[in-house]
């Protein structure tokens, strides 16, 4: 576990798409290291054959019938858009992923 106590902060920050200042990196590296150490007590718990809890009160088949309703006007949809053109959101050029 212990080597887990230090994470590859650059890798994870990129996964989370958050740019960190070098000070933040340094600070988080330490703090998150402590937090992960603190989390290690989880590894001692015996969870053999225990079902995970995804929902406090699980139910099945919570769904709707397929009935269509009206949506936003283009104005409502773009109400908070930082940049738009031709009723669409403008983003810097994207390379196909």
């Amino acid at each position: 576990m212990s080597e887990e106590s230090s994470m590859d902060i650059d890798y994870v920050a990129n996964l989370a798409r958050i740019e960190l200042t070098s000070q933040e990196k340094e600070k988080f590296q330490g703090q998150l290291g402590d937090v992960l150490k603190y989390f290690e007590k989880l590894q001692e718990v015996d969870v053999e054959g225990v079902e995970p809890t995804a929902h406090a009160f699980p139910r099945f088949n919570v769904w709707d019938k397929d009935l269509a309703i009206d949506g936003f006007s283009a104005e409502e949809a773009l109400l908070n858009a930082p940049k738009s053109r031709n009723q669409q959101i403008v983003v810097p050029k994207v390379v196909e992923e």
């Binding site: 958050i18 740019e19 858009a81 959101i89 810097p92 050029k93 390379v95």
Partner: peptide, 21 residues
């Protein structure tokens, strides 16, 4: 779509990392 966009972003990846940063 609706949150502040960083002024300093050149490409799409930037928009994310910088706007969120």
């Amino acid at each position: 779509r609706y949150t502040l966009r960083s002024e300093h972003s050149q490409n799409a990846i930037d928009v994310y990392a910088k706007s969120r940063g």
